[in-house]
Write a protein that binds this DNA or RNA. Structure first.
Lengths: 224, 224
DNA sequence: CGGATCATTGACCGAGCTCAATAGCTGTGG
DNA sequence: CCACAGCTATTGAGCTCGGTCAATGATCCG
């Protein structure tokens, strides 16, 4: 199973701090509270969205009837690109935290044939970013023991830490849907990490991470 | 865990029979034998590739040192788009079967600012397709019991059946890398499906599928 | 305060991993 | 052609992680 390939392909790229103002001139900003729906699966909206603040989850219901969170999208991420192609949204998009969005109408992008190429480049960049994150999700969050997957998830969430160093910690059943495990296992893992001092719960729905211990734990996990 | 949501979000869209000649005028065709590498992870190539025949796998080595197949790409799929953005390839691309490719140089796409919008649309379409497939992979192939995942994989492979109805069947350890299970479990599952008449092995590396029984088995699996 | 949702913990059990042995298949050289 | 080596696949036996079922705590409101 082990390989001697040297290059380290790291799943999660450093946070693409797109604090710079959105490039989509003409797009309209809007805000949503946590648990509000951005768009519904199967519905046909005329726009995709750039997330400027907060975290949005994309989820669907599998043929087995199980709710499954496909990926998380944060600031700088684009969701609902399928609308640009006049297709219904594939997944349900729901705000995990309070979020701020930038609504990008399809019409805006369609008038882009001869528009400045910077915009086109940006579009491609974001699109590819989504693809890579989706693939990183497969690679990191669906592989190995439950403990490993939870650690990986924490590492991902740490990238979205808010100003005072707190990270958003999903509800246990959401963790389950992300990592394909039961609520109980998710809870057990979180509790264990708390006892190990890796995690310090700050209810509601938040925690403080000990980055060093987290890194150590992940290294140990990968080693074992 | 079960939900009463009615809409069926099917993971795998019908095969995008892109038998039509590639839209990329100026791109150069090339052929590779099975197990040949299309591009290496970390290397910097000047082009992305459209697959016109065969199957290519995209894989990486996780931080745990485990080889993990991220997705499969077939005819009509675009791989290595990151080259368009002058970035090194994220994953290793290896031909699973003999493949035919269309090499699309970055320069070709860069001269696209004012080019016909049809090409731009096509690019976006493919990009989105890759994203969706990656997400479908997460949804279908990383969820649930080993048996379910193998069935899902077979359903996916069935979409790439060759002319005489045979499907390419990965080596057991490749199945393992795709579905995050051991070689032994993969072998056990395949053997079981063979005994159940869902699968008829046609070595080397091929099989014939009983679509009806496969569908039934998947339905049973989802029901249980 | 009472009810609802969410989280934690325990006891038990089974799917899948580990370790290990056997069997097919493929190619290579005598 | 056969014999052998090296890979690939299959199968078995035991053990463990995580799922299932169930009970108890927290937390959060109205």
């Amino acid at each position: 199973m082990r390989m001697n390939t040297a290059q380290a392909v790291n799943g999660f790229q450093p946070a693409t701090a797109s604090a710079a103002p959105p490039v989509w001139t003409g797009a309209v900003a809007l805000a949503l509270a946590a648990e509000q729906r951005v768009f519904a699966a199967g519905s046909t909206g005329g726009s995709c969205h750039e997330i400027t603040a907060g975290i949005v989850r994309l989820e669907r219901v599998t043929t087995a009837g199980q709710r499954r969170i496909i990926r998380l999208a944060g600031p700088g991420d684009l969701i609902g690109q399928e609308a640009l192609l006049q297709r219904p949204y594939t997944d349900e998009a729901v705000a995990c935290t309070d979020v701020q969005l930038c609504r990008i109408p399809r019409t805006l992008v369609q008038a882009l044939g001869q528009a400045e190429s910077a915009l086109l480049t940006e579009l491609m960049r974001r699109w590819q970013q989504a693809l890579e994150q989706s693939e990183a999700w497969v690679a990191d969050l669906t592989t190995g023991a439950a403990r490993r997957r939870v650690l990986k998830l924490l590492a991902l969430l740490a990238r979205h830490a808010d100003d005072d160093g707190q990270v958003w910690l999903p509800r246990r059943d959401d963790i389950g849907a992300m990592l394909d495990m039961t609520v109980e296992t998710a809870s057990r893992m979180v509790s264990r990490l708390r006892r190990e001092g890796i995690l310090d719960l700050q209810p509601p729905r938040h925690a403080r991470l000990d980055r060093a211990r987290l890194a150590t734990a992940m290294a140990n996990q990968d080693a074992g």
